[in-house]
């Protein structure tokens, strides 16, 4: 049986009484950029965090490049959880970028990018440093190698985090609202780096509220609500001609927040002072 490059199959996750993921399946092909959108609490972040088993689902399976992640599904509904090193090896193939960066404050910018290469990939220090400096140049931080993360702006921290992930030569990048915690003027630097990455053919799964960015970069947009995928398709179809009421409502809500968006409700929102 051939599987998709990334295959999420029937993922279900419960947080107490709420269903964060309700039997969600999603296939992603190599080189595809998929943006996950939806109201907060819709399960999009939970879905992203299931992919590398940071939030292990209660049921379902994840396959990356024809290998399972996190667990091997067994017959009879039983699941054998992986030993930690096996899971770590699969995770190393997936870069993850967080909303609040999670750079390591006790390590210099350079060491943030060097450490995992040495610890996980067993690269010699010289090689790891060469790679780290090249990546810092790429994300526009070549002159910040010896800084402490605390002395950087949010946008710079996020670019360090992206470089740190790329140093592991991932086959898939998972981005969880990468620009949500940034001041507006810093957003474009980070989005620029991500666009370049997409153009180079990196497979990416991006949770985002930046619909403009999603429209530019995504091959496919997935709209989620209440733990389910409601609608998905190419950005042009999905954003301009939503087929479900729920997506239409969601897009309207977003555009009322942005008075400059050319959506039907925007002018009235400005007029009423919303």
């Amino acid at each position: 049986m051939t599987r998709s490059f990334l295959e999420l199959s029937q993922l279900t996750t419960r947080f107490g009484d709420t269903l964060a993921l309700d039997n969600v399946s999603l296939n992603v092909t190599q080189g595809e950029v998929v943006c996950l959108i939806g109201p907060s609490g819709c399960g999009k972040s939970t879905l992203l965090r299931s992919v590398n088993w940071l939030q292990p689902p209660d049921a379902g399976s994840v396959w990356l490049d024809n290998r399972p992640v996190g667990q091997i599904p067994e017959t009879g509904g039983k699941r054998a959880h992986w030993r930690n090193p096996d899971l770590a090896r699969q995770r190393a193939k997936m870069g993850m970028v967080f909303q609040n960066f999670n750079v390591w404050p006790h390590l210099s910018v350079l060491e943030n990018i060097v450490r995992a290469q040495m610890v996980v990939l067993k690269r010699p220090r010289a090689e790891a440093e060469t790679r780290a400096r090249a990546l810092l140049d790429e994300v526009g931080l070549g002159d910040r190698a010896d800084y402490w993360p605390d002395d950087l702006s949010g946008g710079q921290k996020q670019r360090v985090a992206i470089a740190r992930s790329l140093a592991m030569d991932p086959v898939l990048m998972l981005l969880d609202e990468p620009t949500s915690a940034l001041d507006p003027e810093l957003v474009s630097d980070v989005l620029g780096v991500l666009k370049t990455l997409a153009q180079r053919g990196m497979t990416m799964l991006i949770v985002t509220h930046e619909l403009g960015f999603a429209a530019q970069v995504a091959d496919r947009i997935v709209f989620m609500e209440s733990g389910r995928i409601v609608e998905m398709g190419p950005p042009a179809d999905l954003l301009e001609a939503p087929t479900t009421d729920r997506l239409r409502r969601f897009l309207d809500q977003l555009s009322t927040l942005n008075p400059f968006a050319d959506a039907p409700h925007a002018p009235s929102a400005v007029a009423t002072g919303a």
Partner: peptide, 23 residues
């Protein structure tokens, strides 16, 4: 130590022991 520090260490491929020691 914030939970996100464990998460970034694990997601980059460190085992729990490596994350504890390095991060």
């Amino acid at each position: 130590v914030p939970k996100g520090q464990f998460e970034s260490a694990r997601s980059i491929g460190m085992t729990d022991a490596q994350a504890m020691k390095n991060i």
